[in-house]
Design a protein around this nucleic acid. Sequence first.
DNA 1: ATTATTAATCGTAATATTGCAATATAAAAA
DNA 2: TTTTTATATTGCAATATTACGATTAATAAT
Lengths: 109, 109
Amino acid sequence: MGLVKTEIFTDDQNEIAVLAKALGHPARVAILQHLFKINSCVCGDLVHEIGLAQATISQHLKELKNLGLIKGNIEGTSVCYCIDNTNWSKMKEVLFLFLNQDLSKENCC
Amino acid sequence: MGLVKTEIFTDDQNEIAVLAKALGHPARVAILQHLFKINSCVCGDLVHEIGLAQATISQHLKELKNLGLIKGNIEGTSVCYCIDNTNWSKMKEVLFLFLNQDLSKENCC
DNA sequence: ATTATTAATCGTAATATTGCAATATAAAAA
DNA sequence: TTTTTATATTGCAATATTACGATTAATAAT
């Protein structure tokens, strides 16, 4: 095992889980926060800012890029990363809908 | 390796990551959605509702309980689970702050 | 052309997660 | 008391994730 049984869940449930999972590592949280603050960042800066090896940061960036949360522009030998606002907003909407659920009746416990 | 370097991140970053990670599995998303809809649920119902083995559901419930997102009341031989509204709200606040970040300047890419 | 510089990729080790069968536990029913 | 019912725990196999050194690739600088 060790593999999620995606088939038995709804698309909505899987989407929420995939997005949440991407935010489920402090390095990726730190990367995103830094991109918001600085508003664009070369990969090397992140390696210094966060205390992880270059290969590790690159891997986390790849994950965020695959999900579309960030995008990268090649600038000479370096790559400038920044938040993809459109996709970030889409994610926000999905997660907000989930987080803002309300209890319909009284709570039993 | 395979273990997160928690020490090098801020408490805020770690908290966001831990909460997001808990939502990062479709089974836990499904459990939470069902608890919101039904507003209380014995574990057995969830085993039927979701298509996973009893032991697996129990494990996911334990994780959610440890984080404080749900609480369980023993009712005879069964256990009635429901959302812990206070902690759910606390989580919402933490995640909202993170998700609602705004880009200060123009985006470069 | 050669030598930095920078980021991606590969390979690998260590640990974590997912899922389930089997078993344990604890209360209810017989 | 014995049996049933419902959930938790244990142990284990399979897969995923995290992290990093080493290498590669691609451009810039000398």
